[in-house]
Simulated scan of single mutants.
Amino acid sequence: MHDMTLAEALGELAALEDPKMRAANEKRGDDHGINLSRMRAVAKKIKTDQPLAQELWSTGETAARLLALLICRPRDFTADELDAMLRETRPPKVNDWFVNYVAKKTPLAEEMRLRWFDDPDPTVAAASWSLTSVRVAKDPDGLDLPHLLDLIERNMKDAAPRPQWSMNETLATIGIHHPSLRARALEIGERLQVLADYPTAPGCTSPFAPIWITEIVRRREG
């Protein structure tokens, strides 16, 4: 099979467009109308294709960008390309997939984490906190965890929604993976009450850090 062209890939996406799905997605800020499992099927057909991924990304269209994130090769992006892409990930699903499928998978993850850490753009700062959570869980050596807790304690309450969510994830990750800091993480979560009233579906764990930490620790140690 020949490599799929940009026009063919956009044609496949257009054929999947569903007005009802678009209406539901747009309520969440995602301006596309495609069932994501169908989009994944298109990506599976294409496999990995970095040149096509870059063409899809440069259309600026949400559906095309989501497909690009599924077929790209994260290690092929330069630091400046990653930085530019992140700054354009306004729709929530594009942001989520970029952080999870590209930023967390690139060999430049630590370089980007540091580069993005104090960025004034909340989307950029949030990505840094997401990468920090990965390090807290998998590779904490060299991280100043008490200092991270200081920053969360000082800044999380008034942070914009994206960095607030990511800081909260780091808070919970510290509490779950580092027993010596668990009491402090729980205390910060209780005092700040960030996401305490977040609606949580039955069977799911609340993102409120004290509940999240306690539940995961119970499961791991149970």
Rank of each mutant, 00 (worst) to 15 (best):
D3K: 13
T5K: 12
A15Y: 11
L16H: 09
R22S: 06
A24V: 11
E26Y: 03
E26R: 10
K27A: 13
R28N: 12
D31C: 13
G33H: 01
I34K: 05
L36G: 00
R40Q: 13
A41Y: 03
K44R: 14
K45D: 08
K45V: 13
K47L: 12
D49G: 04
D49K: 11
L56C: 06
W57H: 02
W57V: 03
T59A: 13
T62Y: 02
L67A: 09
L67K: 07
R75C: 01
T78Q: 02
A79V: 15
D80S: 15
L82P: 02
R87T: 09
V94S: 04
D96V: 01
D96N: 12
A109L: 11
A109F: 07
W116C: 01
W116Q: 08
A125W: 10
A126W: 07
S128C: 15
S128A: 15
T132P: 05
R135F: 12
A137N: 08
P140M: 15
D141E: 15
D141R: 08
P146Y: 06
H147G: 08
L148K: 00
R154H: 10
A159I: 04
A159Y: 01
A160Y: 12
P161W: 14
Q164V: 07
L171K: 00
I174K: 06
G175L: 08
H177G: 10
H178T: 14
S180P: 03
L181E: 05
L195M: 06
L195R: 05
L195E: 00
Y198A: 12
Y198P: 00
G203T: 06
F208G: 00
G222T: 06
